[in-house]
Amino acid sequence: MKRVLVRLAAACVVFALAATGAFAWWARHPLPLSGSPLEVIIQPNSSVASVGRQIARGGVGMDPRLFLLLARLTGKGGELKAGGYTFEQGATPLSVLEKIARGDVTHYVVTVIEGWEFRKMRAAIDASPALKHDTRGMSDADLMRAIGAPESAPEGLFFPDTYLFTRGSSDLELYKHAYRAMQRRLADAWAARASGLPYKSPYDALIMASIVEKETGQAADRSMIAAVFINRLRKNMLLQTDPTVIYGLGERFDGNLRKRDLQADTPYNTYTRSGLPPTPIALPSLASLAAAMTPAQSDALYFVARGDGSSQFSNSLPEHNRAVDQYQRGKTR
């Protein structure tokens, strides 16, 4: 038995040495690239595992699990930096890791998240040390004039995406690019819209898309949520959507929406004012734009959160009240 254990231990040592040697060879061996040069974007605030997945999706032939192991073994997992990286033929796993740890970027990035209010977009852009901040001190209206936009209220007019730029670029150029991107997406969606929608202009549809964006818990519900609000507009019913009320409260909102908030009139209170609010309330995604332009075919007028991120839709108030009892109050009838 002792000889068996000794042999087993020796085999384990040999296997470990072989595995270590194979891993060391792999770390210094050129990787297959889908193109050369190859540009890969690493998003801000990415975990090591996420960086590995982004590298693989970007066209670098490296198993994300092996990248994670390499980052841990070298101690560089906490040093990885966001940005746009260029990789050439001959790049090895170790050189890829070291480049990202050094932050040897060809482009810097700012990511604008769908559902953000414009103030969050401004904060993210203001926080980038690689940009030239020409908009610092400008009001929102001044900023809109500076980029040549006819609108004075910026909410909803910038497309949420990841934007690349070189060090020293003006933040005005980034705003212009994001504004023009939204104008293109909005024009395309408007051209493909369903007939008979209760919108007077593409801007109305943009407002609706922003509401859909803030009300959607699961992506599959977007078109149904849009249908509910469009049906209510057609019937001259109040939209009664909480996100517009919250937007109207601004910094006064403390995370708890109260009955008195629903009763306090503001231009954005869709419990006290009919129709759409005066501006969008967030930056809508492409999916929300599509939902606002091509809603589901439904007679639903109400919906309530089920508690799992999805919504229960109802065609009548009694049906909706039963759904509220079931999903919000824990009652059954």
Rank of each mutant, 00 (worst) to 15 (best):
K2T: 14
L5D: 01
V6T: 10
A9E: 11
A9G: 15
A11Y: 06
A11L: 12
C12A: 14
V13E: 03
A18D: 02
G21V: 14
F23L: 11
W25Q: 11
P32K: 15
L38N: 04
E39L: 15
E39W: 09
I42V: 15
S47K: 07
S47M: 13
A49C: 06
A49K: 15
V51W: 04
R53D: 08
I55Q: 01
A56F: 04
G58A: 07
G58D: 07
G59M: 02
V60L: 13
M62P: 01
L66F: 12
L68N: 08
L70Y: 05
K76V: 06
K76S: 11
G77L: 00
L80N: 06
K81T: 02
G83F: 00
G83P: 00
E88I: 08
G90I: 05
T92K: 07
V96H: 12
K99R: 15
I100P: 01
R102C: 05
D104H: 01
E117W: 07
K120D: 15
K120G: 04
R122V: 14
A124H: 14
A130R: 11
R136M: 13
D140F: 13
A141F: 07
L143D: 08
E151Y: 13
S152P: 04
A153V: 15
P160T: 05
Y163N: 06
L164I: 02
F165Q: 01
T166L: 02
T166R: 12
T166H: 07
G168Q: 10
S169G: 06
L172T: 09
Y175Q: 11
A178R: 00
R180Q: 15
R184E: 14
D188F: 04
A192M: 12
S195M: 06
Y199D: 09
Y203K: 03
I207E: 05
E215T: 09
A219V: 08
A219L: 05
R222W: 01
I225F: 08
A226N: 08
V228S: 11
F229L: 15
L233Y: 12
R234M: 13
L238C: 06
L238K: 10
I246S: 03
Y247G: 05
G248A: 10
E251L: 13
F253L: 00
R260A: 11
D261K: 01
L262Y: 09
Y271R: 00
Y271H: 05
P278Y: 09
P284M: 03
P284C: 12
S285L: 05
S285R: 11
A290Y: 10
A300C: 09
Y302M: 04
Y302G: 04
D308P: 08
G309S: 02
Q312H: 13
F313H: 13
N315H: 11
N315S: 10
H320P: 02
V324N: 07
Y327V: 09
G330W: 03
